[in-house]
Amino acid sequence: MLDRAWRTGSEGVGCSQSRAGLVRRVWLRCIRAAVLFFLFMLGTNSVSAAPLDVVVVTSGDTESYTAIARRIEQEVASKGLGRVRSISIGNVASLAAAGPRTVIIAVGLKATQAVLESSSDAPLISTLIPEAGFHAATTRAGKPSASAVYLDQPLARQLDLVRATQPGSMRVGVLLGPQSAALLPALQIEARRRGLQLNVAKISSESELFPALDGVLKDADVLLSVPDQLVFNPQTIPSVLFNAYRHRVPVIGFSQAYVRAGALAAVFSTPEQLADDVVDILARCVDNPRVLPPPQHPGRFSVVTNDQVARSLDLALDREETIAQRLRSREGKP
């Protein structure tokens, strides 16, 4: 209808004009101006909002932590969201004097715990922290409204990786420990959705690990590693990998190091990817930083595979990027 109105309007120029036509022309021009003004406002909204005061607190100064801090700084600057400053865990008390535009990014468990224990009520986004650790910290501090970008991948994505690397697999072996036991119900749901059978063993002490591992490996096409410090640590992983290999069972890991050690594949997020996800949250909530989205698993991720192990187990794997792409499209991402 607007189309015909324009045409009528332009056709009408230069011709004899009635009074009704004049009113219509002015009315339509107002609408056009209003639309343009609205678009202008949308486009320049970020510039017009006040800058954020992003405070980054890291749990340590090793590469992972500093990489995140650096990336957040870069991205916040390039998106013009505000300014970034870093403070050490010891100075967390200074956050009490935070302003209305302050957003705290806590990198790691220690930083998260320190911020939660401080008397600051500035909005908090935690990152480089496992889901279980984040929940434990926020429940203890009684601050459920904090947001996070977890370090661990959603179970759905991990099971999709199982599917992508070993399409014929049916039985997934899982070893759960005290830190990961709570994930069992969710794991069962996601497995059932994909037609996968779970073979689960739960342990509560290290001496139970190898009998449990043996039992699980006997009846599994693949072993899914769910992060848990008791089950998967630098002392136990060599044995897990040896035993799994002896059973010809591939292991799905959770980090590049684990895959380099001998796991078949892993889906993981680099510090840069986590930082980008955090900055996305900041960008989305720049208008009202007090209302943050609920904690979430990372949206950006990569896939790494171990070709030597794949070849030895007679498994044909696609290239890492192809697998990652397949996982992304399964999640409905571009």
Partner: peptide, 22 residues
């Protein structure tokens, strides 16, 4: 030696380095 790990899960549970095993 039983290690009953009831400590909260930290990122160290995922970020440790590993030797090449296989």
């Amino acid at each position: 030696a039983d290690d009953i790990a009831s400590t909260p899960a930290s990122e160290e549970a995922m970020l440790f380095d590993m030797p090449v095993v296989l």
